[in-house]
Simulated assay, not measured.
Amino acid sequence: MSGKLLRLVCIAATAAGTVLVPAPATAVPEPETEQHNVADLLTDLQELYRKAEEATEAYNATEEKLKKQRAETDRLDRALARARLSLHDSRGAAGRLARQQYQSSTDISPYVRLLLARDPQHAIEQGHVIGRLAQERADTIGRLTGNERKAHELARKARTALDRRLALTERRKKERDEVRARLHDVEELLASLSRDQLTDLAEFEQNGITKAQKKFMASGALGSEHSSGTDESKGSTSSVRAPSAEGDRAVRYAVRQLGKPYEWGTEGPRTYDCSGLTSQAWAEAGTPIPRTSQEQWKRLERIPLDELRPGDLVVYFPKATHVALYLGDGMVVQAPRPGAKVKVSPIAANPVLGAVRPDPTGKPLRRYEPPELPEGATDGSDEGYEGYAAPAPETSTR
């Protein structure tokens, strides 16, 4: 067995959690066996990448919820401060009224005071004043009681909501880090492979992508996008469907990010993960969308693939764990995965789940000129093997 093949077989077995028994020295594997083992290794790696991305997208979703909860908690804190200030004022007013009542208290009945008064009319007016003071005291006590109840309820809501979100975030972070730890073991093995071995693995996957792309394009899934015609949704200088003005801005933003590294859980401006790129592209276009690929798939309007136009989002895998921004001509801009950079890739580089449109009411531009792609926009691996360096397991908190 060649050293190269033995190494690949060992890695495949390690990734699958199995124990290898060395084959007899005389055993000579058939070429199909080597290909089969590379395929097994690739399957294991892709599964780990998907699990890691799924966990990271779940963590990203929790981060977004936590941001919103923090804003809500800040609002509750401000309301609580106002309620406590009002409570302090109510207590001060109640104290003043109590002192006034004590200073003016007497054992003489108000009726007797009226009979003995030299000026009964003045006494009656005094009685009205006293009555108003009594009503004010009652109102103050009511406000005091209400403010105490409100302050207590606001404090309880703020504590409960924040504790719940913090607990959820910690749990999601633990899940993400567990998957990353599993992925780290395989990534260390990838980093230890020779350049030739990495090339074999990358070529094997790229051949699969090429076949999948050809099959996808031949299926007619994109409809008549590439045919010429008088459809006013087509740009006059391109066969690509014209996007809306917002879609055009989103595409141009994404193109400007080409070459920037992929990094878990980031949304620019120096590094991106898949949904970080798409969410920021549309935020820059003036149309904020959900942060994660799952929420983008869930909440944005779904469209048939044969209606794709630049700026639409293409979502991948059954659990919607990856997303890219459609560029046109069967190509997307994406942040693929660790070790890779933002690049232009075939739309079928991953199994397509469907597509969504962030601006369903946006009218297509009458004239559209696709952005000019920089040299090397499609260069580099869609798989993330080139120049790979295994990261250390993440231990810091965010």
Results as ranks from 00 to 15, higher is better:
R7C: 08
R7S: 13
V28T: 07
E32Q: 05
T33G: 10
T33I: 14
Q35W: 15
T43C: 14
D44E: 15
Y49Q: 06
K51G: 15
E57A: 02
L66R: 12
R70V: 08
T73L: 06
L76D: 15
H88L: 12
S90L: 13
A93Q: 11
L97S: 00
A98K: 08
A98M: 10
Q100M: 09
S105V: 11
T106H: 10
Y111H: 09
V112P: 03
L114K: 05
R118H: 15
H122L: 14
G127C: 02
V129N: 14
G131Q: 09
R132Q: 03
L133M: 08
L133G: 00
Q135F: 15
R137T: 04
I141F: 15
N147W: 09
E148F: 06
H152S: 04
E153R: 11
A158M: 06
L166H: 12
A167G: 01
R171S: 06
K174A: 12
H184M: 14
H184S: 12
L193A: 02
L198E: 06
N207Q: 07
K214W: 08
K215W: 02
F216A: 02
L222M: 07
H226T: 08
H226I: 13
T237H: 14
S238A: 05
A242V: 05
A242L: 13
P243K: 10
S244N: 14
V251Y: 09
V255K: 03
R256S: 11
C274V: 00
G276W: 09
T278K: 08
W282D: 03
K298V: 04
R299M: 11
I303C: 05
L305M: 13
V314T: 04
K319I: 02
H322F: 06
L327E: 00
Q334A: 04
P336H: 05
P336I: 00
G339W: 03
S345I: 06
K363R: 07
R366P: 08
P370V: 00
E375I: 11
G380M: 12
S381D: 10
Y385I: 12
P391K: 06
S396M: 13
